[in-house]
Design a protein around this nucleic acid. Structure first.
Lengths: 372, 372
DNA sequence: CGCCTTGTCTTCGATTTCGAAGGAAGATGG
DNA sequence: CCATCTTCCTTCGAAATCGAAGACAAGGCG
């Protein structure tokens, strides 16, 4: 709350403030200092004044907005078979979002270069002339070392271990670069939609199971694997092996990939998590039971973490999360087993930012790097 | 890092800085500003100069210390049958620490009043004349609402639910008052002894099982129950009921109280956790097996949390922690099952601050309130 | 319609804070 | 022993920030 430099810009960008007076209140700076600073930002072409706002009983504020020409951010969310790509303005609002097929098994070099080309393509087709690109970022479906921007020991990305994604991506653009785990980005993106909920867990239930953690308003990275819940032992059957080398990991029972395999063995063809959701909505009992069981397993794990962290909210997103039994089972497990003190004001809900949450989160983090 | 007011005092108090130059380096303030501030603090009688320190290749620093007359803090750590009480100077160094029998089942009013009387007694006997008391604080073996200083739903403190401890204690002293969970205080106290380890978990294994969490250098309170690990389900036998109303909680299997009960049923008389430690050291096989099993159960729970939080260290303290099999079993479970990325630089060790950790933690937190 | 209240924004002098320069005190090395 | 380097601390303008006062612009109300 004390970063005086680009802090005002961030407050405007995130929509927290719309006038000089609000900036003064939220930043803690004197009104006079705010005026000076805003003058500079307008002079630099980053802010514009936008007519008067609604009065709150006195003189009407002069609304401030990010200049449309202030710049753009190019962000990506890399999945196993698809990537979402988008351009955001500095306020984090998406200008365009596309989903394109993309196979990460082609290896990191090819994939990163492909992303860079896609960013160039998006800029060429959608950026108004003269508006500069100010930062690029991507989410990765695996652990990322926060210090170096390298992928570390990803269980679902063969060939990527240790690859310096940030470096490679930065080679294409002389700009701030962000590389972060996809669930972490989703958590950051969701955090904006949950005002007043300062510590929250964002569970991404898709092909894999990811989780991002926001503590006191900031992303908790740990060593790059923080938030990992997929390799918790959930059974003592010792019957199912996980790619991490241990037995009975949550991911081996409750991930979209695990459910897909079981359904296929039952002769039900499934490609993507969305197909499972469709089966559930069609009332296919095998699918519903599987999804409900997955929710219960995830909920059992969350039980431990809710007691431990006391989050204000648990956000469930990802491809599987649209299946209603998943979230009901999670709710049931958590509310039944956790301490009353920990669940009293705990909200467990669907993603509010939708499938673009990770892109929005990338924008949010990138903004910090851009306006530093 | 930006609290300019009493921040310098804190840096001196915590031993992080000893000279104006170090203050400047650590606080980020300009050297000139530091000099001005230090002059004021000396004028106010809070700091004193203390002869030259060791040269680092140039002019020798003029060492700064807290004035011995700057004030004292009275702190307590309330247990089930005993309380540790102490006076600290503003640097957090103990002047005197005593352990006295104290029965919390006498109810909150009597207990808090007893603490207040004990503080007065300690001040009368040990405080140099003219040195003022500047703050009081106590640790509580149960959840404390951080906002109100009330005890909330304590499982081991019948009659205390909802009691406004901070208010009652504050009634005796017109001073800053701190009331906090004992494991949280232990975590804060230990944090100082683990430099460079910014996020750590402090597990207190005594009659109960507590845990305090430091994230990025600051205590994570959540709703007052953060860090709770004692009510995690550790077995599916559904055989042992816990005081919280659920079955198979960790506390019902691995706490000192649980072990005591099992040992008594085997005809081995035990009163306190220390007695169990003695049995283990004497090579009594039943005790050793029980303690090792408790460590494994605790370790299994920590496994989930280590993957999730990626702490830099796990500190094991409390009366049971001196039993070596406990910590070995914890280490074995965590290192075997957790993600390599999460355990690569994880240190699991004994308490470094000893039995006074909670008192030191209380001092540390109180200092914030005092020098605010 | 005039007056009061409320909220927004700017002007301007006072206070903090900074940064560069320099003096003080010791280490180092011929 | 003396020049030189390092580190510590203070001095002194320059720059940033603040706070109070006032100008400005609404809405509410008799």
């Amino acid at each position: 709350m004390r970063g005086t430099q680009g802090d005002l810009l961030r407050l405007i960008a995130t929509g927290q403030a719309e006038s000089r007076a609000e900036l003064a209140r939220l930043s803690g700076l004197a009104a006079s200092s705010v005026s000076l600073r805003v003058e500079e930002l307008i002079g630099a072409g980053l802010l514009v004044e936008e007519g008067p706002g609604a009065s709150r009983g006195g003189r009407r504020p002069r609304r401030l907005r990010l200049s449309p020409g202030a710049g753009l951010l190019a962000v990506a969310d890399l999945g196993a078979q698809h990537a979402r790509l988008g351009l955001l303005d500095l306020s984090g609002a998406p200008l365009v979002v596309e989903e394109r097929p993309c196979d990460i098994s082609l290896g990191p070099e090819a994939t990163i270069d492909w992303i860079a080309a896609a960013f160039d393509d998006l800029m060429g087709r959608h950026a108004p002339p003269g508006v500069p690109l100010r930062g690029v970022g991507t989410g990765i479906p695996g652990p990322v070392d926060p210090a170096t921007g390298r992928v570390v020991a990803p269980s679902r990305m063969p060939g990527w271990n240790g690859f310096p994604v940030a470096e490679r991506l930065g080679g294409h653009f002389d700009l701030p670069v962000l590389v972060e785990n996809d669930a972490n980005l989703m958590a950051v993106g969701e955090a904006r939609s949950w005002p007043g909920r300062d510590t929250l867990m964002a569970v991404k239930a898709g092909s894999g199971i990811g989780c991002g953690v926001i503590v006191n308003g900031t992303l908790h990275r740990g060593r790059g694997a923080a938030g990992d819940i997929s390799h918790v032992r959930v059974s003592s059957d010792s019957s199912t092996a996980c790619s991490c080398g241990h037995l009975d990991c949550l991911e081996a029972y409750a991930s979209g990939a695990a459910l897909r395999q079981v359904l296929r063995e039952q002769g039900i063809p499934v490609e993507r998590p969305a197909d499972i959701v469709a089966l559930v909505e069609d009332g296919v009992p095998e699918a519903t039971a599987l999804v409900r069981n997955a929710g219960r397993l995830i909920g059992d794990v969350l039980t431990v973490l809710v007691n431990f962290l006391n989050p204000d909210a648990i956000v469930v997103g990802g491809g599987l999360s649209s299946a209603e039994p998943l979230i009901s089972a999670i709710r049931a497990a958590v509310y039944e087993r956790c301490l009353p003190l920990a669940t009293r004001d705990l909200e467990i809900g669907h993603s509010r930012s939708g499938p673009d949450a990770a892109l929005l989160g990338a924008g949010s983090l990138l903004l910090d790097a851009v306006v530093g």
